[in-house]
Nucleic acid binder design. Structure first.
Lengths: 137, 137
DNA sequence: ATATACCTTCCACTAAGGGGGAAGGTCAAG
DNA sequence: CTTGACCTTCCCCCTTAGTGGAAGGTATAT
C-alpha cells in the first residue's frame, strides 16, 4: 500500500509518517520501481502501536526506545514496566497539581463573578491574585 | 535596577525577561546611557503578576490579553472571569482524561510486572496494548 | 592592565508535528 | 494526449515558553 492509503487507514497524515521515518521511528520502507513508498501490514501495525503508546502518554522518544528492544529481538517488558510506572506517578502528581489549581481558580472565579470585594485600582480579582501570590512567597 | 537584579528578585531568568519584552508582555524598558535595561518597581510588580497568572495555568497570550485591559485603563474583571471559567472546565476535562489514562496504565503495568499472560512474540504487555487498542477502534 | 561579572544582540534549538509551496515524477481514466 | 490525483524531495515558517551559545560591549575591583 502507498503512503496515502496507510495514512488514511491509521488516521494520521502523510506528513507525520514521513516525519516518523525521518526520526527513525518507522523503518525506511520498500520502494516501488518508481520510488513510491510501499507499506505492508507490518507497517500498519507498527503505526498502530505508535499511536497507542502515544495515547498512553509516551513521548516519541520513549516509544522509539521500546521499539528498539523489539527490533533487537529482546523482551522490552521490564523497560516497558519502568516507563509505565514513571508515567503513572507522573500522572498522579499532575492530577494532584491540577486539582489544587482548579480549586483555587474556582474560588477566584466565584469572586470575579460576584463582583464584591475591596476597592481596587483595576480589578479586585487581579489584585486578589496579586496579594495571594505575594503572601505565599 | 538592571535585568539581572530584577530576574533574581522575581525568580526568573534574564532570558525570560527579554523574551517577555520581545512578545510585548513587558514594555520596552528605560535604558542606561550604555544601553543596559533599567527597571523600576512597576516592572517588578508586572512580572510578579505574570508569574501568578502563569501559575494559575494561563498562557502568555491570555495574560497579555488581561494586561492589555489594564493598559487601556479598563476593568478586566469580566474578561478575567471568562478566562478563569474556561480554565476550570479545561482542567476538569484534563483531570478526567488523566485519571482514565492512569487507571489504564496501572492495569498494564501490573501485568508487565507480574510477567504472566499469554505467550507473545515480543512482550505480553505490548501485545496486550496492541490488542486493546485494536479492540477499541 | 586585566580579571570577572554583567550586559548587549542575534541565531539556533527544543516536542511533535502542521501547513504550505515549489518543482517535478507517475499512474489511471477518458 | 491530457487531466487529476497521487507521489517524490526539499524548503521555509508556525506553534509554547523559553534555553543555550557566540561575539562583543561595559562596569568594577584589584
Amino acid at each position: 500500500m502507498r503512503i496515502g492509503e496507510l495514512a488514511e487507514r491509521q488516521g494520521v497524515t502523510t506528513k507525520a509518517i514521513r516525519f516518523y521515518e525521518s526520526i527513525g521511528l518507522l523503518p525506511d520502507p520498500e520502494r516501488t520501481p518508481s520510488g513510491y513508498r510501499a507499506y505492508g501490514e507490518v507497517d500498519a501495525e507498527r503505526l498502530a502501536f505508535i499511536k497507542t503508546a502515544q495515547r498512553l502518554g509516551l513521548s516519541l522518544d520513549e516509544i522509539k526506545g521500546i521499539i528498539a528492544f523489539r527490533d533487537r529481538g529482546e523482551q522490552p517488558c521490564g523497560y516497558v514496566a519502568d516507563v509505565l510506572r514513571r508515567q503513572v506517578s507522573d500522572l498522579d502528581r499532575r492530577i494532584r497539581e491540577m486539582r489544587a489549581l482548579r480549586d483555587e481558580l474556582r474560588h477566584l472565579e466565584a469572586r470575579a463573578s460576584g463582583g464584591e470585594g475591596p476597592a481596587s485600582t483595576y480589578c479586585a480579582v487581579i489584585e486578589h491574585v496579586h496579594l495571594e501570590d505575594r503572601a505565599s512567597e
